[in-house]
Design a binder for these strands. Sequence first.
RNA 1: GCACCCGUGGUGAAAUGGAUAUCACAACAGUCUUCGGAACUGUCUUUGGGGGUUCGAGUCCCUCCGGGUGCACCA
Length: 584
Amino acid sequence: MKSELIDHLVKTAKNIGISADFFALEYPENPEHGDYSTNIAMAHAKVLKMAPKMLAERIVEEFKKDMPQSIESVSVAGPGFINFKVKDSVFAESIINNQDTKTKREKDGNKNILIEYTDPNIFKAFHIGHLMSNAIGESLSRLIEASGAKVTRLCYPSDIGLHIAKSIWAMKRHESEIPADSTPIQEKTAFLGKMYVEGTRLYESDELSGAGITVKDDIDSLNRILYEKSSPAINTLYEKGRNWSLEHFELLYKRLGTHFDGYIYESEMAPVGLDIVKMFLKKDVFAESDGAIVFKGEDHGLHTRVFINSHGLPTYEAKEMGLNVTKFKKYPETDMSIVVTASEQNEYFKVITKALTLIDENVGKKTKHIGHGMLRFASGKMSSRTGNVITAETLIDDMKKMVIERIVDRKFAPEDAEEVSDIIAIAAIKYTILRQAVGSDVIFDSAKSISFEGDSGPYLQYSVVRANSIIEKAKGELDLGKEGEIRTLINQSKVVLPEKVGLLEKLIVRFPDIIERASAEYAPQLVANYLINLAGAFNSFYASNTIVDVNEPLSPYRVLLTKSFVEVMSEGLHILGIKIPKRM
RNA sequence: GCACCCGUGGUGAAAUGGAUAUCACAACAGUCUUCGGAACUGUCUUUGGGGGUUCGAGUCCCUCCGGGUGCACCA
């Protein structure tokens, strides 16, 4: 109904000599203003030297000459808005046909999108910052898929670099404490985390490591050994830790409901990046400075960064060159390559993107960085360097304990309670992350900050679970025919449509629009906001109407409406990466 | 010091330059012996200060104040 309205509005505008190439058709916040509203008169009044209200009247007059069937009334309001009221029957029909609730997928149908997110570091804890990156990246992936594009999910685990050298240096010191292979994976990676903290602490101190060498120097040379893979003993430790970390990450991905189509490892990108930087050093993209090879960002209004350090090793920056060039080699059909990281890296990525553009314009232009906010605590910044970290697993498990307490009286079998509480705990966390703008910080003062009421993931889950249970009940009591028979039932007056529809119908019909906009703006919070309003509308509807009632002529319609709600809610929650339990 | 980002009820957030700034939590007052109360209804309290652009500014520009992040060999 929206496209019909836009077409007619554009036609109307042309008839009275307005180009109509810029205007907005929006949903008024105040429902009394109608179902759609446009600022077309205000937007063009100045150019035409007319009072906005007069122009609006003129447009309305012309619009009414050949009004689309679906429109009930048009009026001018306020400073010159034109408000449209859609016939209630159109909404009711939409619910019946269930056409308008299906997301349109043609638009980006041919696009191929790469999206890189999560990027954990082996030997280090998978902390809630990674969880945040993962929740956002996965949701963006699903959102882009919902708009019809083909999405390839990439993960770029960090498996080389100074942080690993620090960890392995500490591991060597504690060789006798290295866990056996039969140890649970959580204990093995916890050991690695401790090694990293110790290595970092001593790297930053002035302590000596043996014969007059500082720990720092010792770790730096170990780093070189790692890059060169020149010591079999070190390689063994490295492989052990690497496998433990990667194994643990896979378990987490599964638990979080995410997966990757491809992995590119930082260690693979080290030689590739090194070659690229050296090649473009000759072409003057990079410059030598104090024994290092740098990119002079100042020439482009940015800041200078080191790409190859004075030991001749590639830094993260050089590897990033290799990574982004490699992505387009591996996936040549790519229309856009998105990289999701914490917003701490926003400035860094501007430099990276500029350098990439100079190396390969196509790659640079198609690479887009999205910075997400951080998880913050009252106690200060979380840091995996000092060991002041909350791991993703700890957070989920803490939430899970709260959920289990909550459902003790629901008589779940132990395995079911386990599964349901996991789904709910993860929903609570993901929703808290996704309900707000991607770039802004999420503040976790305590686990208590995640409520299960009102604006929360579990509230959304609860509303669908309850709706599903009503549909189950209806199956035994009402005859709704089979697929495709509803039209017949309407003709036989077995299904009666309401004369007036409410907010619920109007919101359901709006869903494809929400997806389109959220996807275009990379804004999952628009979906989250919409769903919370939708759930509220359903719960109000539920509270004031008896849905299943054999003596109520509108009952079949209400069940169909409930079904539409379930469909939209399910797809919406899928986009947020939230699963729906059967019971809760 | 320089650069980038952000300041919205007591708290956490929303708002493609549009109308009376939306929602939840908290607080307070209610509903209902339900189709599953993790519910519903109502009350209460908001755009950091000052200029400017615009028919119209929480949104754009300038400035001040406050906060965050980043600025060479970490990732």
